[in-house]
Design a protein around this nucleic acid. Structure first.
Lengths: 188, 188
DNA sequence: GAGCGAATATGACATTTGTCAAGAAAAGCC
DNA sequence: GGCTTTTCTTGACAAATGTCATATTCGCTC
């Protein structure tokens, strides 16, 4: 059984018909590092499930990359603004490692919500989880000093950031790469 | 008809039975300014709909108040982390103005989701809307300078912040109140 | 494993922002 | 309306962070 089907099953048992419909709507894809799932100007047509790999969401502001989040195996990956509004994106979704993704289009997803009302329950639960994460990230950003922000990141998300380049972490925390480098090498 | 019922109706027409169940689960309340809907340590048992007034969500960090968001008439108000996880809150929900709120408990809401599967559709849509807002707020926080953050806030949320005290806006934007005061009185 | 390019580290200095203090303005309260 | 309390403003200075320049290290490719 596909990995993301078994993940959804943990939220609520899927009927055989729904399982069948999900399998019919998705196919796994193996993609190389640096592959771009979405670019500014495009409308996000798909939501992805990451079976393996690492993905970064980022935007360009005044010519600088600002990393919004990082997702790893077992996560859903999506441009929140573009997918839910079906308006052109302002953000990039970029693979940081070779990855295996399953995906489903916006239209297919709406059809599933329509044909299987109980699937709305699952959609709601998944949304709740990522909404909570988004709020947690925002909270971190409101810490006063650069040191505090980095400390909170390590406390709340200790695993992901082992695999992410430091200059990406710095942009995620709203500081210069040099500042992060100094934080890490100074006495705590 | 109650204001929040008619709001939900715009997302998807409510069946008479669902309308009836919603009305039976909620009663409007008139509350004074400075009333606290939630405090740290308490589990968020209710989600509120603001018919009139203004609410602030904030946390204490190193003895300082950090404002996470502000909601006005027509908005749903909730402690995302505490309500969805049903764990003790770390945040305050405080009325900034005399307000009229409708509310429903976690248990009543789960019952509605169970008894009226189509209500999951509405719950999902509402979540999507606020998730988008949350991401937008987070994006603002990642702007480099204090001036940029304030500029984005005015661009994206021009109305709400007319009614919010400046020191609250400052804490929301992660800067000292003095910094915000200077931004506003200097040539742009 | 040698060589290349990107990522990280480090130093010097400029700029932004925070802190503290004091005064002005505004808002709430009898 | 006058009083009190809070909020906002402004100045001087200190601290934190950004910028630029230059190593140094790391990771890839051949």
């Amino acid at each position: 059984m596909s990995s993301f089907i078994s993940f959804l099953n943990t939220l609520q048992p899927l009927s055989p018909a729904l399982t069948q419909a999900l399998l019919a709507s998705t196919t796994p894809e193996r993609l190389p590092a640096h592959h771009c799932l979405l670019q500014p100007g495009q409308v996000a047509r798909r939501v992805y499930f990451l079976e393996a790999g690492l993905v970064r969401g980022y935007t360009l502001l005044h010519g600088r990359e600002i990393s919004s989040w990082f997702m790893q195996a077992g996560d859903f990956v999506i441009s929140i603004l573009s997918f839910f509004t079906q308006q052109p994106s302002e953000e990039y979704l970029e693979l940081l490692e070779p990855s295996v993704v399953h995906s489903i289009t916006y239209d297919q997803l709406q059809r599933l919500y329509h044909d299987f009302p109980e699937f709305n329950f699952i959609g709601r639960r998944v949304l709740e989880k990522y909404y909570v994460l988004s709020e947690q990230r925002a909270q971190t950003l409101r810490s006063r000093t650069a040191a505090e922000r980095y400390e909170l990141l390590l406390r709340d998300f200790p695993t992901v950031f082992q695999r992410v380049a430091l200059h990406h972490i710095a942009s995620h925390l709203g500081m210069a790469p040099e500042t992060l480098s100094r934080l890490r090498n100074k006495p705590s």
